[in-house]
Write a protein that binds this DNA or RNA. Sequence first.
DNA 1: ATATATAATTGGTCATACCAATTTATGTGA
DNA 2: TCACATAAATTGGTATGACCAATTATATAT
Lengths: 247, 247
Amino acid sequence: MLSEANQSVLTNLHGKRLHEAIVEQFHYWIQKGILEHGAKLPAERVLAEQLKVGRGSVREAIRTLELQGLVTSKQGSGTFINTQNLNAVASLMTFSLIESLGDGEAQLKDIFEVRHLLEPQLAALAAQRATPEDEERLSAILVEQLRQIMEGETGVDADTEFHFALATATHNTALIKVVSAVEDVLRQSRDQTLQQPGRPERSLNSHRRILEMIQAKDDLGALAAMEHHLTEVEPSSINPHAQEQVT
Amino acid sequence: MLSEANQSVLTNLHGKRLHEAIVEQFHYWIQKGILEHGAKLPAERVLAEQLKVGRGSVREAIRTLELQGLVTSKQGSGTFINTQNLNAVASLMTFSLIESLGDGEAQLKDIFEVRHLLEPQLAALAAQRATPEDEERLSAILVEQLRQIMEGETGVDADTEFHFALATATHNTALIKVVSAVEDVLRQSRDQTLQQPGRPERSLNSHRRILEMIQAKDDLGALAAMEHHLTEVEPSSINPHAQEQVT
DNA sequence: ATATATAATTGGTCATACCAATTTATGTGA
DNA sequence: TCACATAAATTGGTATGACCAATTATATAT
């Protein structure tokens, strides 16, 4: 099996950490079919000796493989290959593809796209379900946003708060989690977006329109208002042009 | 900061492994805002002492957090919180979604509602952007799903894989992360859903229809097909009736 | 042959020691 | 005083050895 696993197998450490090299070795073995589904790995101690590494490194590697869904460990019995779980292999393949894409602005555009998918419908839901307390809360946030803007701030915090409160008004806990995650990522960049002159005021105005629609229980109106709002606050940097901004 | 981290913090080991409990503790700290982006963690040795655990367990926990994109370690300097990247947010999202799911089926309904908001539009996007490779991949998954069904299985894995691949076909990394988080949470319950007679076949058929629409680049058709699919696979357990199932 | 008790196996955890990269402190010379 | 080289302290990375806990394999008694 893996008996010929000597130090020569793990020599490709390009600054990589040892357990990472071990993980790659297993990826190779699995992909090559040397380790099939259900196969039992040698005991950690044996594996450590065969690979000429410490047991700790083996364990850290196994931890990684376990998180990737490729193996499962059970105390007393052993560690087993688990390729039945397609999620594991497939998601890892796409993983490497995705990771190669830079962490630059492409992701920001993606996030806005997610917002476009989610938030208009979210607004519609909120219009259907918002309680008087929800509406009051949204209204209070807009007051705060106005105050921040008048004091020369951008109003980012209030802006984020508004979207979060809107999610809360749907009374859907899962939706709240998802939206707050997305908004969290956005908050960093949102400050820049709102830096452009006139943007904070326009954002506030479209927020007001959304709230009006919600108060009127007009779900389709809320949907449209949110769609409009998102289009308006969208950073122009998503466009290839207009890259220059005051730093 | 985390100075008050004594053994009482990690007492919730419901058969969980120690390093897993440590990971959860960090999830909590990060989500609670106690650990913000860029924050430097205490040294592994210190952390081990504070948590009253061995350094090895701390390292295995850090390995997990690193794989989830929540921290990055660099030899000589330290380990730092990193919540800027999308992987990190997705990890925390899954974590908190699962956490809130504990109470019962009320939240399951919420998750399905999120799917109803997201996936039809996701399908439409996929129809616009899917490459021939994406379509081939989707097609292959349906073949696998058919195989699983013919062997008497429910085809959950292939089912989950299909939705994930669909997200991939949008070529929107953020969307992929969000959807996979939602799907991850759903996979557990989906097995039950598909247990009902006829369900697996109907699921496969509606998957086929979605793929056809995508191949025809018919985005609105894909949207409608997905909407239909979701309505069809929706667990009747959301309904108070029809609880009895063959064990 | 079956059931039970015992031993061996194996993952899970802890402690200690040393290595390697990095950071910080120190000292020396201009 | 400042700059820069050097040394020390810090911190993640790895290796060993030990012991615990769950599981499996073996042996023993009935």
